[in-house]
Amino acid sequence: MNDTLLWILSGTLILAGFAGIVLPALPGTLLVFAGIVLGAWIDDFTRVGWVALAAIAVLALLAWAMDYVAAMLGAKRAGASRLAIAGAVVGTVAGIFMGLVGVLFMPLVGAAVGEFIARRQHGQALRVGIATWLGLLAGMLAKFVLAFMMVGIFVFALAV
């Protein structure tokens, strides 16, 4: 396969990874990492070596863990029930079919509905929904920052 086509595929994987940070149907950080590994492979790992790839892999694992930790911390801090957490997951999946607005706000709705079913308290349900939603947004922001750092290390290694 032509190197130009492989570089296009590498860039496409990285861009799809950034989309996947917002869209839960795509494994965002994994796609960014795959695009970077492909780019390093195209160059026979001469400019992007194993040290850079190891640093990028650590950032990818950190981004993956951050996704779960941020959402759970937001939910736990507000005293969320298991139904609230399950509702956030269902809301996230349902939001995929509603576009960007659905992806951003359906986890809040799902967590609030789950909490309301569990405890039948309007105020608590809304508080849990908002805390879970803020945790998800914080995780998404952290994943963006880490993905940009991954790409930054990759580009720096290519340029040097």
Rank of each mutant, 00 (worst) to 15 (best):
F105T: 09
R127H: 15
G129N: 11
A131S: 15
R120F: 03
V48K: 13
G123S: 06
L59T: 05
W41S: 14
A75L: 10
M98S: 11
M106P: 05
R119H: 08
L59M: 08
F154D: 01
A54R: 12
V90T: 13
D67N: 01
P107E: 00
G139H: 06
F144N: 01
V93D: 01
G99W: 10
L137T: 03
V101R: 10
L137Q: 14
M66V: 07
Q124P: 01
A75G: 05
V101L: 15
L38K: 04
R119A: 01
W50H: 07
A88W: 00
K143I: 05
I130D: 07
A52I: 08
L83M: 14
L59G: 02
G95K: 08
G123Y: 06
F105P: 06
G110P: 05
A55T: 12
M106I: 09
M150D: 02
G35N: 03
L104T: 07
A94P: 08
G39V: 13
V101K: 13
V48A: 09
V89F: 01
L141P: 01
L59V: 00
G129I: 12
G99H: 04
A118C: 04
R77P: 00
R119P: 01
E115H: 11
V89K: 01
A65P: 06
V37W: 13
A131I: 08
K76W: 02
V37D: 14
M140W: 02
A54V: 14
G123Q: 15
L73T: 06
V155W: 10
A147M: 09
I117H: 04
H122K: 11
V109R: 03
A118N: 04
W41I: 06
T92I: 03
D44E: 15
A60I: 02
F97H: 11
A70W: 04
V89Y: 00
L137H: 03
T92H: 00
A88T: 02
A57C: 14
A71L: 03
G74T: 02
L108Y: 09
G99K: 06
F148L: 15
D44F: 11
F148D: 05
L137W: 13
L136R: 01
A65Q: 10
A112P: 14
I85K: 05
D43H: 12
A111V: 09
I36E: 12
A131C: 08
V113L: 15
M98W: 02
V93Y: 00
A63P: 10
A71V: 10
A118V: 01
A111T: 05
G152I: 14
L136F: 03
R120M: 00
L53E: 13
T92K: 01
D44M: 09
V151A: 12
M106L: 14
H122G: 03
A138T: 15
V48W: 12
G123E: 13
T132Q: 11
W64S: 13
D43F: 12
A112I: 04
G87R: 11
V103G: 09
A40W: 10
A94M: 15
M66H: 07
A57Q: 11
A111I: 06
F144E: 03
L146A: 04
T132P: 08
A111Q: 06
L73W: 13
